[in-house]
Every structure is written in C-alpha cells, then in structure tokens.
Design a protein around this nucleic acid. Structure first.
Lengths: 253, 253
DNA sequence: ACTGATGTTTGGCACATCCAAACATTTAAT
DNA sequence: ATTAAATGTTTGGATGTGCCAAACATCAGT
C-alpha cells in the first residue's frame, strides 16, 4: 500500500530534519526532536545516517547542513543547458542597467533563481541563488506562467494560495489570467510593488523556435528609478536583447 | 540496535538513489533498480517520496535531481562566515594573476571548493563549485592538513587511501608529513603536477589570530607559466595579500 | 558531590518497508 | 493491426526495521 499518497515515512522524517536544519542553520538533537515531535533516539539515528553520508556536519552538539549539498546543487544545475550562456548575458544586463538582474526557471510550480548579478546601483534584497518563490506575484513568475503550456498553467493557478503580500499583490485568479494574456502579447511582464513595497521588476521569457519555455530573465530596481520611458522602453530593450542572444544559442545545443 | 553502524536503511537507500541520479544526471526507475539491485516497486516509492518533497524532478520516465538542492546548498554555504569576503578577494586574485583562483574548506576529511574565479588566462579544468577532492594530492589540501589540529590531521592521514594519480603524487604518509612540516614553516603549499600532469598549484591558509583554520586560497595554472620567481615570489605574494585581507576581517565577525 | 540537561545506547513491539507478482501503459516489432 | 516486450505503477502480505520509552553516559552549572 505504498504510493505517492503514502511516502516512505523514514525518508520523510529525514527530509523534515533537513528542513529544520535549513531553517535553523544549527540545531541540537533535542531542538529537532521538540520541533518535529519525535523521540531523541529517532532523531539521533537519522542524523547519524545523514552524517555518515556527509550530508550533515556535527560541531559539538550542533548539527548543520553539510557542504556536500553544493555538489548536488551543481549537478542539478547541470541539467539546465542554457545556464552558462544565460549567466553571461545576465552579467551584461546587470552591468548595462546598473540594477539587479536575475535568471529564473520554473520547477514544481515555483520560480527558482538560478543566477543573480548585481549592477552598480543594485538594490539589496534577500534574494539568493536557489531562492524559491510563488509565481503569481513576481515578474519572472508571471512570465513563466504566461508562456508555459496552458494545462500546466491552470494546474498551478488552481493550486495557488493567493496571499495579499502588498496592497498591489494580485489575489484574483481572473485578474492574473487577464494580465498573463497581456504579457503574452507584450512579451514583457511587470511587477509593480506586488512583492515588496518600493520594488519594481520586469521580465521576459527565454524560448526556442518551437515556443518551448526555458526560463526567464528579469531586472529589479527601486520604484524611483523604474518609471517612464526607462521602464517601458529602455529596460525592456536591454532584456529583450539579452534574451535573444540566449535564444539564438539554444538551437546549437 | 540503531547506531552509526546501523544507519536507517530506508534513508540510506534514498541517499543511494540520489547518488545515482547525481552520477547519471537522468535515470529511469529500472535503471536505478538495476544499478542498486532493488525491486522496481521500492525505487518507485523512494522516488515518489523525493519528488513530493521537491528534491527530484520527473520528466516522462526520466528522473533527475531537483533544483531545490540549490536552496540547501545556499543555506549550507551560509555557515561559512568568511564566504563573502573571501569571494571578493579570490576574484581580485584571479584578475591580478590571470590564473584560476579557488577558495576551499575542509569537511569530512575532504577539500570542498566553495568558490572559483577565472582570470584571463585561466586553465580550464573539471573543477566546479562544490567539487570535492582528497587532501593529500592538492595544494589546498596540503595547506588544510598542515594547519589543522594534529590529531585530526593524523586521523585523516590514517584513513587516506593513497593513490598514485600522476608520477608526482605523494603516496607515502611519511613524505606527506615531511612536506606538511615544510608547509607550516613556509606558509605556502605547492602542488607540482600531483593531481594532473601539466598543472601546478599553490595555496595558503586562512587563519585567525588564535591560529584557527578557516579554509585555504589557491591558484592553479599550467606548468609553463608556474615557474621561477613567479612561482616562488610573485604569486605567493599575491596569495598572501589576499589571505591577509580576509584574516583581518575575521575578527570583526 | 549533586542536580538537571543533554547525547547516546538498548531492547522489544508494532507496523512500515520491501519484494514478488499482477496490472496498466507505453514502445517496438512483426 | 496485432503481438510482444519492456516499463511504470499498484497491491497485499511476510519480514525485519524504525520508533519509542527507558536506562545509561556525559557534561555543565550550583
């Protein structure tokens, strides 16, 4: 009687422990046992197994995530064929615009930041490589939704829990769909302070000739600099150029 | 009867699966079942559990590592306090020298590359951020061994399986110990084609006032450029400067 | 020395994991 | 088209394992 609805419990427990270590950065056996409501002995065994495999490090009583995850991260990234090319273009984009430039792809209905480049005047955000966010309230997210296959889009929207993060956050699926249609026509998506007050973003999709979506590139900056023609003309132009260069290179993979 | 000697089997199995996915980049249920000699049903359940947690991605029949590991990698790196400072200095070092510059730390008796910067003439190697290697045959490795607590050093050396990778590779624990003593006096370790023929490396430790070891910085280049005064004077000077700047900043953490 | 907290180990029971086999689904071949 | 082969998925049941509670070990503070 094992299926997706019946995950392997021991494994699930270990993954929960990893999650706690991620949140807490460091934790002792008792901390984790309390947090997850398991016996100390159980947690101990799980941690020992993880440590033996190098996925967890023990410093005195404190356990924390091992650096071996970096290795796994590299191999996971390796699957993204356009990574190297896009990275180079995102660097240029950041330099040209002076803002923060990002490369994001979709996985499991979320946007995952794969590369971040900071221009001279880049805003400081909590964004990091590996950061995951919901698609409905970011520029890249809306781009990814707009250009993915319709059935998948509807599936994700259906499962989305719309939260009012800022006054501007879209909370209505209907309105989201309307914006996505616009985005498909315009080729550029905007985020008008929908995630963080004072921050504006804009993004464009990376697609091959068949229209297959590979990811999205975006710029983020303060609302004071992201207005008028710069927002509607200049920056979209820069992004489109960056994206085009990547797209040209897709065919040669 | 569960201890470190008796790891949780279900978890161990899952970790083995992750390992296969890392090696193969993509694999089907049957591939993994054959490789690990388990039933298809078992592998299927493990993969389902991993997928539900976002650690694995399914494309048709092919499973591969999920991008969520990047998130974990970030949080693991977060533990390395000097990461940001060192990264900046390694960038400079690469620019100044034109070679490949690396920042490496020790974990579980291995060297783990945390940052890589490529100068203008940098050699291309298989090295990537997250790459793990044994300590006895690299410059950083020998640095880390030389400056870590003695008991730990001996423990690692004892467990090391010395392989003759190139003609120059050290295969004798005694000779290694002799070199480590030299390195402690000189403050710089060299790798004379001990890992790859034609490649020479040199590294120095990052330590605080108490002598606590934080990691190592190194340069790698072709033997043709790594000789004479450049190798014995110029480059060590550059590395020492980079390391010093990091060390000064440690106290303020 | 004693107390309280923690990490670690132990043994035994409940039940979760694993296997084999059957089924469903896709792909290849005739 | 029809069959054959290979794969992913599901099922039920026997085995053995993961979990808990409790005891033990270790350490810090009083």
């Amino acid at each position: 009687m094992n299926s997706a609805k019946h995950p392997i419990q021991a494994v699930q427990r270990t993954l929960d422990i990893v999650d706690v270590l991620k949140e807490k950065r460091e934790a002792r056996v008792t901390d984790i046992a309390d947090e997850l409501d398991f016996s100390k002995g159980t947690i101990h065994c799980h941690l020992a197994t993880l440590e033996q495999n190098g996925y967890v490090v023990k410093n005195g009583q404190q356990y924390s995530l091992g650096l071996q995850f970096i290795d796994l991260a590299h191999h996971a990234t390796d699957r993204v064929d356009i990574y190297d090319i896009t990275r180079a273009e995102v660097d240029k984009l950041a330099a040209e615009s002076g803002e923060m430039a990002l490369f994001t792809v979709e996985e499991h209905g979320e946007g995952i930041c794969l590369y971040k480049a900071e221009g001279e005047d880049a805003v400081q955000t909590e964004l990091y490589v590996g950061y995951r966010n919901k698609l409905y309230h970011t520029a890249v997210g809306k781009v990814l939704l707009a250009f993915m296959p319709e059935e998948r889009r509807e599936e994700i929207i259906r499962e989305t829990n719309f939260e009012q993060i800022t006054p501007n956050t879209i909370t209505d699926p209907g309105e989201l769909r309307a914006q996505l249609t616009e985005i498909r026509e315009r080729g550029i998506a905007y985020n008008h302070e929908e995630t963080i007050q004072g921050l504006v973003g804009l993004g464009a999709p990376i697609r091959d000739q068949d229209g297959t979506l590979y990811g999205a590139v975006s710029l983020i900056g303060p609302v004071s600099r992201m207005e008028d023609e710069r927002l509607t003309e200049e920056l979209p132009k820069l992004i489109r150029r960056a994206v085009n260069i990547v797209e040209v290179n897709i065919t040669s993979l």
